[in-house]
Design a protein around this nucleic acid. Structure first.
Length: 413
RNA sequence: GUGGCUGUAGCUCAACUGGUAGAGCGUCGGACUGUGGAUCCGAAUGUCGCGGGUUCAAGCCCCGCCAGCCACCCCA
């Protein structure tokens, strides 16, 4: 048997949940003036090297990269922001005026070992607000994040924010961290030893050496005046909106392009992979991709993790059921039943037996599928032009003309 | 990439210290030849994850691979 590739998933019975969630997210985004965008699922490898950063784990070991038949290096997108920004630059969308506001829902690919809440092909809902340097842009994006989660009924999530400063203040902070950790380096775990050289910020969210991280220098104290007032501006707006958040100095995002604001939404009961959404500001990404300086903010949310959270909170929508199940008594009525099904399906969701089962089994089937009504098309019905409509919730039956059947369904469904 | 646990019917799981595969649920049918959700009866379906080894004999033991789950790393 050919089986699906490791770390991929078939969504079959649960698809209606996905559709429902996506609809809610689209609504939130569209009502705030964001335009849905679909970019290619693969891009030139160079795009991700430039945007995500050559030193990041994503680029170094997690990308699905291959050469196409023309000898080009192609990569399955590991995240969505790079493509949206590329499209923004490629189509000179700044000429349409700023800001430009986009959202997307789609597949991302990362070659990682699968575990709870982590797949190799996964899906993200993401938002990009391009062109505004102001704190209100950060606040808008964070608001969209929380509103989206609330729109699907989630409540047990925690918003955490931080600032990673800019090219002026971040080096100063890194230096301070190096000085702090240098004398105790030998006491740290093996991973932290390598993190010290590779990416010192990562020492802050090590799961083992938490004690040392607690008393480490806090980036907030090292922010330059501009970054500090920007961060305070964002906080004031979040306070105005009444959003609860925690300032968490250990939030260090794994992509190189972040500047200033970074944030995460955690769903603590999910297990090790408890971040359902992450984002921040990336003020230099457009320049990096060859456009004019265009400060931007955005986030990406993990659809699969959101699905797990939804199930945990028991906030699932109800599954789709047929409104009417059309049933025949014998073979001769099948053509008639098919025609009636066509009429009914213009307004209602209809199911009809396609297996040639006998009447009783058709009823069983209708019941199993949760059909609200069964319409019997038998010899008598065809002769008289009045059909037997049975309400499966209480067993009541009545004989109605097709027109009256339609009316009755419209009234009661 | 590393580590732990797991892999028997569509699903959940059983099979004593190795003796050659079973139950419940589900599916389909019948009891009930124009009526469901209850009950009863019956039927079908397994390369026992794959490959190799040990043995008279392997679902069970050994090795390798693959897959799943969980964790590390990292992230959504």
């Amino acid at each position: 048997m050919i089986k699906k590739i490791k770390g991929t998933n078939d969504v079959i019975e649960d698809l209606y949940i996905w559709e429902w969630v996506e609809e809610k997210f689209r609504n939130v985004a569209k009502n705030l003036g964001f335009l849905e965008i679909r970019t290619p699922i693969f891009e030139a490898t160079e795009l991700f090297n430039r945007s995500v950063g050559t030193d990041t784990d994503i680029v170094q070991k997690e990308m699905y990269t291959f050469e196409d038949k023309g000898g080009r290096s192609i990569t399955l997108r590991p995240e969505g922001t790079a493509s949206v920004m590329r499209a923004f630059v490629e189509h000179s969308l700044d000429s349409k005026g700023l800001p430009q506001k986009f959202f997307y829902i789609g597949s991302m690919f990362r070659y990682e070992r699968p575990q709870a809440g982590r797949l190799r092909q996964f899906h993200q809902y993401g938002v990009e607000l391009i062109g505004s340097p102001l704190p209100i842009a950060d606040a808008m994006v964070i608001l969209m994040a929380t509103e989206s989660l609330k729109a699907i009924g989630l409540s047990n999530f925690k918003l955490k924010i931080n600032s990673t400063g800019c090219e002026k203040c971040r080096p100063r902070y890194k230096e301070a961290l190096r000085e702090y950790y240098k004398p105790i380096l030998a006491k740290l775990c093996d991973d932290c030893q390598t993190r010290y050289d590779k990416n010192i910020l990562r020492l802050l969210d090590c799961k083992r050496d938490v004690e040392y991280a607690k008393s480490a220098p806090n980036i907030i104290d090292y922010l330059c005046d501009d970054c500090k007032s920007h961060f305070e501006g964002v906080r004031r707006l979040l306070d105005t909106l009444g959003l609860e958040y925690e300032i968490d100095p250990s939030i260090v995002r794994g992509l190189d392009y972040y500047t200033r604001t970074v944030f995460e939404i955690k769903y603590p009961s999910l297990g090790a992979q408890d971040a359902i959404l992450g984002g921040g500001r990336y003020d230099h990404l457009v320049e990096e991709l060859g456009g004019k300086p265009t400060p931007s903010v955005g986030f990406a949310a993990g659809m699969e993790r959101i699905m797990i959270a939804l199930k945990a909170e028991n906030k699932l929508p109800s599954p789709p059921i047929p409104d009417v199940y059309v049933v025949t008594v014998s073979e001769g009525q099948r053509p008639h039943a098919l025609k009636i099904s066509r009429e009914l399906s213009k307004t209602f969701s209809v199911d009809v037996d396609l297996m040639g089962r006998k009447l009783k089994s058709q009823f069983k089937n209708a019941s199993k599928e949760g059909a609200r009504y069964v319409l019997v098309v038998g010899e008598d019905e065809i002769k008289s032009g009045t059909y037997t409509l049975k309400d499966m919730s209480n067993g009541n039956q009545m004989k109605l003309s097709l027109e009256d059947v339609m009316k009755h369904l419209e009234k009661t469904l």
